[in-house]
């Protein structure tokens, strides 16, 4: 069984499919996420593909602070994703709520609603930072797997 899980983990790291969801951002981080997926940066080199439906996705890229209106929708999308799944918070607002923290309509960062695996700060986070963050998340999965083997 050890060999089989090793192969499945390898495949998981090599083929992360992302879903992009705006939880109330000012649209700056969204533009940068879209920029990261253009041919200029060519994320398909790492097997990254943008998917339209949560059923196909492995990684949920969230941008912006969680507003009260979007909270239940965010949870619904998170629950629609099949296991194993990871959440990446893109931008300062997604990490901590940013300048919107404490507003009457805002519930702080993404981790106030769903568990987050990686944080990418920046206002907005540049495409290079987003790619770096996703690669670091994949590397940490690899390291975790190696630890399990020992």
């Amino acid at each position: 069984m050890g060999k089989l899980t090793h192969i499945v983990n390898w495949a998981r790291i090599k083929s992360p499919w992302v879903l992009h969801f705006n939880t109330g951002a000012c649209n700056a981080c969204d533009i940068e996420i879209i920029a990261a997926l253009t041919p200029r940066y060519d994320l398909e080199r790492f097997g990254v593909q943008l998917k339209g439906t949560p059923r196909h996705a492995d990684i949920l890229l969230c941008s912006g602070p969680v507003t009260r209106q979007v909270e239940c929708r965010l949870k619904m999308i998170y629950e629609q994703m099949p296991e194993p799944k990871f959440v990446v918070a893109v931008g300062t607002c997604a990490c901590s709520g940013g300048v919107f923290d404490g507003c009457y309509n805002v519930k702080s960062g993404i981790n106030a609603a769903i568990p987050v695996s990686a944080y990418i700060p920046g206002c907005p986070a540049s495409p290079k930072a987003i790619i770096d963050g996703v690669v670091k998340l994949l590397q940490s999965l690899e390291a975790e797997e190696e630890k399990k083997e020992k």
Partner: peptide, 28 residues
């Protein structure tokens, strides 16, 4: 497709990795 769009494109094992990954995922 990638080369015609002037980019590098996926490595040779990409479809296999996608297939194995999907096999290992939860089906809802």
């Amino acid at each position: 497709y990638a080369r015609l769009q002037n980019r590098q494109g996926p490595p040779w094992f990409q479809p296999l990795a996608d297939f194995i990954k999907l096999l290992g995922k939860e089906d809802i």
